[in-house]
Write a protein that binds this DNA or RNA. Structure first.
Length: 700
RNA sequence: GCGGGCGUGGCGGAACGGUAGACGCAACGGACUUAAAAUCCGUUUUCCGUAAGGAAGUGAGGGUUCAAGUCCCUCCGCCCGCACCA
């Protein structure tokens, strides 16, 4: 099948891992490039998206400002030709350093001369056969094939540049043709050195001597602060790079051979897939009428169910009858399009449908207006330039056709990490499932064959390396709550988490502990009774409300690992309180209250256990229907605080003082401390900095 | 090559510029047990010291500050994205 270039990762299909090769085919595209500028500019409005993702999209769209201009051409004998060669450049300031032109192997000029030159035809085939992976491209040497034409320099009479077909020129970018200035471009200098082309420096640091400034095997690339100026460039000499660009652009525009142009790296989105599982592209090919859209009343086009997968290729193509239809326009026998849409087409607007799932029409604008944009979107960073770019485009396109209400579908984006796991392999190099690996005396063995295993890296779970965990087995043994708790507990959600057996065990033990704690709190606690005013009971009550305050903030900020740490702290506080001798009514009430707060707090992360515990505690209304509790502000603030005491920036002591104590008073108390006097060693304090309720630093 | 991110105990990781190492895992010691598991209690950055206490410490080096894991500069290492984009 065919893929969009976003879906090619390291020269392989993003999903199938199959090697990708280039071929020329007729395919369907969605014109995402019409939105290049908009998609780029609007990135600045997405202030609740990770900077990383916005940057990736910015780079992928790849805007560049340059100049498109054309060279007059002549043949080998110097006779003028009718056609011109159009190139795109962002470095028109270096035009006097030009020493060659190059076109892609697919360029019209290369095609034309290949018809009569078998060597060129062969060269074009070789370039086409080159793989698309980065390794291949990097290893491939720059190669050119000299064409029998020359480009006339626009500003220098009599100067002509050789024109090559070259393997490094991309047909899909700019004009598929360029002029090379070896002195100021890495790629161009490699090419020039290989083919013995002139290297003329035309930009030099301000203080360099133009007469002797020379280029070796590295081009001179202007850095910030160089204040570089033009040399060897006729009327441009002495200008800065921006000045020279402006001047050249203006002259070429005046000459009618060039125009300023913004170019994008983004290509149109190839959506044709030669597969059965997808929405059929609703088009009909008629010999007389050409391409005819399927009429609205015939939509959607339904896939046939009697297909076979016994042959390679698209089953729709092989189906005996499905593709044969009458042309909706002229009624003659016609052929139905058998390509289906890329799955990303569907995922580009499902959220719009979700706003009105029972509607007869795909999307209702009122519902979309009410719900959109999505407040919080969560997904893996692997979608940074696939799903997340396509959806942004699709929303805009649907808005234009009156189907949707917003430009940006996702107001806030959070990119979560992946689950990773250790890898194990036998001496023969065979990957082994973690379930089959066994740790004995610090070494890993195959559980069934007893073979010694080597531990490989901790990697993204993948079928090929077999470092996967069967979710069914986890659910069977520990339950879904334990699995959730473990995944949320150890690692911040934006990072990859390593799945470890001991970590899961730990989570599972904690679920048991919570269950016991709730029962103990029920036994020793009480729902009513007087509020605790002093002692351990008040301490526990404070701990519960502080935990609640912290967890509320952490959950809102998606800091699940920290919420869980707070819940552990409260569980520890509850455990110690249960061991206290205090069983007076205020303590009984505090125990019960702490247990209830604890259950409500872990409910979002372990819903099943929470419902069970909630019922144990005597509640009829389920947790899901219970509002999130609110911490009592009076209990969050302490009336005593621990203040660290530093001498010359080193911690020497700490003191418990009343909250909000006057600076002068704090200073007096602290200066009397033995530890402080010892550290000062007879010196007088020069300065005392008191940060209220936090820290004191004495400079001596 | 360009762009971005990150370097903190044995491990995962906490720390509005203000007591580095919360919480968990692992390890070790103890209680309970005929024993083990489970559970409970404790220890656990490193070095010196029986202890009290002291010294060093967030990849390396410098700087700003009363105070730096956090801010600034230089370097080293790792990870991610893009990659012949003219």
């Amino acid at each position: 099948t065919v893929l969009a270039n976003e879906q090619v990762i390291d020269g392989r299909g993003w999903r199938s891992n199959a090697l990708v090769e280039k071929r020329e085919l007729a395919q369907w595209f969605l014109k995402i490039t019409d939105y290049s500028e908009e998609l780029l500019e609007a990135l600045d409005t997405l202030d609740r998206w990770p900077e990383k993702v916005r940057l990736m999209q910015r780079n992928w769209i790849g805007r560049s400002e340059g100049l498109r201009f054309s060279f007059a051409l002549e043949d080998e004998k110097g006779a003028a030709l009718d056609e011109r060669l159009t190139v795109y450049t962002t470095r028109h300031d270096t035009i006097f350093g030009a020493s060659f032109c190059a076109v892609s192997a697919d360029h019209d000029l290369a095609r034309k001369y290949a018809e009569t030159d078998p060597g060129l035809a062969q060269f074009r085939r070789e370039v086409a056969a080159l793989g698309t992976s980065e390794e291949t491209i990097e290893r491939a040497e720059k190669q050119g094939y000299l064409l029998p034409v020359y480009a006339r320099h626009p500003f220098r009479d009599g100067v002509r540049l050789p024109v090559y077909a070259a393997n490094f020129v991309l047909s899909g970018y700019g004009e598929g043709a360029l002029f090379g200035c070896p002195a100021h471009d890495q790629r161009d200098i490699e090419f020039a050195r290989k083919y013995g082309l002139p290297v003329i420096p035309v930009v030099a640091p301000k203080d360099a001597d133009a007469a002797i400034f020379a280029i070796g095997d590295e081009p001179f690339l202007e850095k910030e602060g160089d204040q570089a100026v033009l040399i060897n460039s006729d009327f441009l000499n002495g200008m800065t790079v921006p000045q020279a660009k402006e001047d050249v652009a203006r002259r070429m525009e005046a000459m009618g051979i060039g125009e300023r142009r913004v170019n994008f790296r983004l290509r149109d989105w190839g959506v044709s897939r030669q597969r059965y599982w997808g929405c059929p592209i609703p088009a009909i090919h008629c010999g007389k009428c050409g391409i005819v859209p399927v009429p609205k009343q015939d939509l959607p086009v339904i896939l046939p169910e009697d297909v076979t997968f016994d042959k390679p290729g698209n089953p729709l193509e092989h189906h005996p009858t499905w593709k044969h239809v009458a042309c909706p326009r002229c009624g003659r026998a016609a052929r139905r399009e058998t390509d289906t849409f890329d799955t990303f087409v569907d995922s580009s607007w499902y959220f719009a449908r979700f706003c009105s799932p029972h509607s007869d029409v795909p999307v209702t604008e009122d519902a979309a207006k009410y719900w959109m944009p999505v407040d919080q979107y969560i997904g893996g960073v692997e979608h940074a330039i696939l799903h997340l770019l396509y959806s942004r485009f699709y929303s805009r396109a649907m808005k234009r056709t009156g189907h949707f209400a917003v430009d940006e579908p996702f107001a806030s984006l959070f990119t979560q990490g992946m689950v990773i796991h250790e890898t194990y392999r036998t001496e023969a190099g065979e990957w082994i499932f973690p379930a089959d690996a066994e740790l004995r005396d610090g070494r890993w063995f195959h559980a069934r064959t007893g073979e010694v295993l080597t531990i490989g890296g901790v990697e993204k779970m993948s079928k090929s390396k077999r470092n996967v965990i069967d979710p069914e087995a986890i659910l069977e043994r520990y339950g879904a709550d334990t699995a959730r708790w473990f995944m949320l507990s150890d690692t911040p959600p934006e990072r990859d988490i390593e799945w470890t057996e001991s970590g899961v065990e730990g989570a599972w033990r904690f679920t048991q502990r919570l269950w016991r704690l709730v029962h103990d709190a029920l036994e020793h606690g009480e729902a009513g009774g007087p509020l605790p005013a002093t002692g351990e009971a008040l301490t526990l009550r404070r701990a519960a409300h502080k935990a609640l305050h912290a967890v509320t903030g952490d959950l809102n900020g998606l800091r699940f690992n920290r919420s869980i740490a707070r819940i552990y702290e409260l569980a520890n506080a509850l455990t110690s309180a249960l061991q206290s001798d205090d069983r007076a009514p205020p303590m009984r009430r505090a125990l019960r209250e702490a247990a209830e707060i604890m259950v409500l707090m872990f409910a979002p992360m372990m819903p099943h256990l929470a419902e069970e515990c909630w019922q144990v505690l005597g509640h009829v209304t389920p947790v899901v229907e219970t509002p999130w509790p609110v911490a009592d502000p009076a209990l969050i603030a302490d009336d005593e605080v621990t203040i660290a005491v530093q001498v010359n920036g080193k911690r020497r002591d700490e003191v418990r003082l009343a909250k909000g104590m006057e600076k002068a008073e704090v200073e007096a108390i602290v200066l009397r401390l033995d530890s402080v006097r010892r550290a000062l060693d007879g010196r007088l304090p020069k300065k005392v900095i008191v940060v209220p309720d936090r820290i004191v630093n004495i400079v001596g």
